[in-house]
Design a protein around this nucleic acid. Structure first.
Lengths: 248, 248
DNA sequence: CGCGCCATTGACAGGTGTCAAGAAACGTGG
DNA sequence: CCACGTTTCTTGACACCTGTCAATGGCGCG
């Protein structure tokens, strides 16, 4: 609950919502773990997080839960992707507040107001930005790198300026399902980063960053472990060489 | 080159391009490995693949190249995400043709024509869809599952109806950098899928799918390896229980 | 033909998942 | 306010998987 109230009063995102939308939204409040929409619901609303935090996920065929996005105050979601893959969302914190917009009204408003349409495009592009940044995190090799990159992402999205700490509203399980690691590995990676003096725990959900460089790249961590330093350097060379071909 | 010509004549995506855009585009042709734009370029154009294939990637601090998207005929790219993270793109095949639209003209056209604006939103949402589907692939645990899921993704995006095969325009190295695996592991996974009669090679870049189920989930593959079957089942239960809390 | 590049296969070491156990924090009810 | 059960988080031990290193063969190209 300390987390919930903290996240709630820390952020005020009235300016994050395009003004023309304010007339057609409904504000809903959810409890921790409560479903906002599930994969079989009709995709008839857009949403914007006002306070708290939301997870967007799917349950894979093997029973694992893959979280594809954490939504924080100011983030929009619910623009339903066509195609097969559908996701469910639920609240992470008690008192998570969400603004809901009827899709039809939204699209009608965008048709009438091209400027609003542009803002919506920006919102969607922002979501792509998050998604592709997350792909880079998932692409990292070791668990310590993944967790370090995750902390840096959260540092930009969920930073408490007063205390200079990164706020992690979600549980270790959520982090694990977000990074596709086991809970134990996430916990070990955090312990490791603490031992290496890269971070310091205020409590389990608030983290003080001591050394950004140590988080960014696991440099020096692989010393003596036989990592192939020049691994893909030559591959880049091949790309450079290929670039030399004339454009037709 | 056999791949290039094949991909070129297989796809005709004139209908994929919103008609109002046809007047303001320029068609460019690239050779294999040639740069289309790099991370330092101004983000002043949108692009649409007409023929061939394109990879969008970034080079991480440790020198590894992470591919975040393969662009195939009909796919748009270049809506530059704000924020730090920038990507470069280059052609995968000789004769890759790309339509380029000046960003300003595009936005001006969208302001004038709300319907076009809606189409552009759809295009961007489509890109999110790809990105999040890819996150699911990255979230899979074993290499065989990753490669299997990748083949299914490509089967939907790059299928040769005449030959009933999946066309893989990219090299094994590209696949490896896309899935964040080593080339050797990708190769081993493909060999394994072939041995298990899930796929059959026509040649190195064309694959016939024998058993979709084997690709979808590595079922039976973990038999006897002590996989935790009920791993996150109970976690779902906790979510269900939490769901029971009343909404305020 | 020889030279790169791509693809495949084998051997070994290190990292992560699993299983297990324990500690800490939280919510509930007395 | 405290006791208690539940959930969350942490730590340890071991097996499997993937990255690394190495070697080989096929293929296109100059």
């Amino acid at each position: 609950m300390s987390i919930a109230s903290r996240a709630a009063d820390r952020v005020d995102i009235a300016d994050g919502i395009p003004s023309p939308l304010s007339s057609i939204h409904t504000v809903l409040t959810y409890g921790r773990g409560e479903r906002i929409y599930c994969e079989t619901d009709l995709a008839d609303h857009w949403y914007c997080v006002l306070a708290g935090a939301v997870r967007k996920y799917t349950v894979l065929s093997d029973g694992r839960r893959q979280i594809v996005d954490f939504l924080l105050p100011g983030d929009f979601f619910g623009f339903r992707e066509r195609h097969h893959q559908y996701f469910a969302t639920d609240a992470i914190l008690n008192g998570t507040r969400v603004a809901r917009y009827p899709r039809r009204s939204l699209e009608a408003a965008a048709e009438r107001d091209p400027h609003l349409g542009g803002e919506i495009r920006e919102i969607v592009i922002e979501a792509i930005s998050r998604s592709q940044a997350r792909l880079l995190i998932m692409g990292r090799v070791t668990s310590v790198e993944k967790v370090g990159a995750f902390l840096l992402e959260m540092a930009e999205r969920c930073f408490d300026r007063r205390e200079q700490t990164v706020v992690l509203p979600m549980s270790r399980y959520d982090i694990a399902d977000y990074l596709a690691l086991s809970v134990e590995t996430v916990s070990r990676a955090l312990t490791r980063l603490r031992q290496e003096r890269a971070i310091r725990f205020v409590d389990k959900h608030r983290i003080f960053i001591l050394d950004r460089n140590l988080l960014e790249n696991g440099r020096d961590r692989h010393a003596g472990q036989g990592f192939r330093e020049t691994y893909r350097a030559d591959r880049n060379l091949t790309a450079v060489k290929a670039k030399g071909l004339g454009r037709s």
